[in-house]
Simulated scan of single mutants.
Amino acid sequence: MATVASQIILHPTASQTVNLLGSTVGRDKLYRTAQYFARLLAWVLIKRGYNVEAARWDALKSHLATGRKLMRVGKPLEHLQAALKALNSSARPGEQTTTILRQLCYASYLVYDAAVWANTAKFINLSKETNQKFVRRSNRFWFFGIVFSICHGLLKASRLANEAKALRGYTWGDKSVSTEAERAVKYSAVEKERNTLRYQFAIDLLDVWIPATNLGYVDLNDGVLGFFGFITSVMALRSQWAAAGRKV
């Protein structure tokens, strides 16, 4: 029995789960997945007339959203550091600028988000008008942060496509084996980076509709937003799961 228990408890999947839940980002992605699933399910239940059952899932969605705000307190510093690192980097001007603007927007979004949470927790007292203003500013910075992320992705994708094309057009036969091996390694690295970029680009293209709807730029219902948020949450959670697996 002890052997069976140890095999279960010390199984690599169990260790990977511990690593995932042991990080703030891992827990946040898991809670976000549950939050948007609850949002989608609540909308479906309301459409089918199950209002009592829907209220339960709607309450779960709201409490998860509030809890995630607390988990992100202090995170603006991380984005400010990323912006400073981008400023001191040797990246191309377009990519550098969009990275800096994206990080500054995310930092501003999280500052206002933390203020909204503090008001909800009654730690500070904001008037109804001020709280609504902060919520709107938070969504505006979130929206533009994603927009700059999309712009960054387009610029970087163009550069990587040119690099991949140049590596594919490499002349074989008159070069040494070591040079050809080096080219193959570079090409593999570029393709890996392109795949990562496409993955994040897909997340951004779906996530951008959430703050856009909150700001009134578009009018999508909770079912669509819940579905988009659930898909991107699963995608982000998948990346964190893979990262947790590398620590096992």
Score class of each variant (00 low, 15 high):
R183G: 08
Y50T: 02
D204M: 05
G223E: 00
V208P: 09
W172M: 14
V111Y: 14
I46G: 02
E193D: 14
Q96S: 13
Q81M: 10
L77W: 11
S23F: 02
C151G: 08
Q35N: 09
G173P: 02
K61A: 04
V147A: 13
G67P: 01
N125T: 12
I124D: 06
G216M: 08
L41V: 08
S239G: 07
N214S: 12
S239P: 00
Y170E: 06
E163M: 12
L220G: 06
A91G: 02
F141T: 02
Y112L: 12
V111K: 04
M71C: 04
L225Y: 03
S176F: 04
F141C: 06
V25Q: 11
R238H: 13
I46N: 02
R102I: 07
V44P: 00
K133T: 10
N19Y: 11
E182D: 14
Q7L: 10
G22S: 09
S158T: 14
A34L: 15
G67C: 02
R183L: 03
S188L: 12
F227W: 14
N139C: 08
I124T: 15
G74N: 00
T97R: 14
S239R: 14
R48H: 02
G223K: 00
D222W: 03
F230M: 11
W142M: 07
D222L: 04
L45P: 02
F144M: 07
R168L: 05
L110A: 07
